[in-house]
Design a protein around this nucleic acid. Structure first.
Length: 133
DNA sequence: CTTCTGACA
DNA sequence: TGTCAGCA
């Protein structure tokens, strides 16, 4: 048999604390995601129990955040992720979200470039004024 | 000691 | 999302 010195979890699922440590999150964040409807851990009394399902979802949430998706968007993707028997449905939705995110980033890049150009113009004017002194 | 809910410098 | 409180 195997001994668990630190005593982290059981077959039924792991505690919020153990899961948080494993995924590098705070228990606060995990509960926060639950409040936002991204997670629905089983309950044993008041205690939350997280199975493989929740663990996978948490990792998908982390990745979604890295890619810049809002929790609301991640929830949409996640909802379809398990409700659709047909995987093509979720993939189609995900592709749409990816396109949106890409468009958003491109728009931001455009704004940044515009601002940079204005800054360059202003800088040039200032330099010219300085030269004439 | 760990978790839970609710509130908020 | 962090943190603190007051319980269980």
């Amino acid at each position: 048999m195997e001994t668990r010195g630190a005593g982290t979890e059981s077959e039924a699922g792991q505690s919020i604390g153990a899961l948080a440590r494993q995924l590098g999150l705070t228990t606060r964040a995990i509960r926060f995601y639950e409040d936002k409807g991204l997670l629905t851990p089983r309950r044993v009394g008041q205690r939350r129990l997280y199975g493989p399902r929740e663990r996978v979802r948490l990792q998908l949430i982390q990745r979604g955040k890295r890619l810049g998706f809002s929790l609301a968007e991640i929830r949409e993707i996640l909802d379809i992720y398990d409700e659709s028997q047909d995987e093509s449905a979720q993939l189609t939705h995900l592709v749409e979200k990816i396109a949106e995110r890409r468009a958003s980033l491109l728009a931001q890049r455009r704004d940044i470039d515009l601002t940079l150009d204005e800054l360059d113009q202003l800088d040039t004017q200032c330099q010219a004024l300085l030269e004439r002194r």
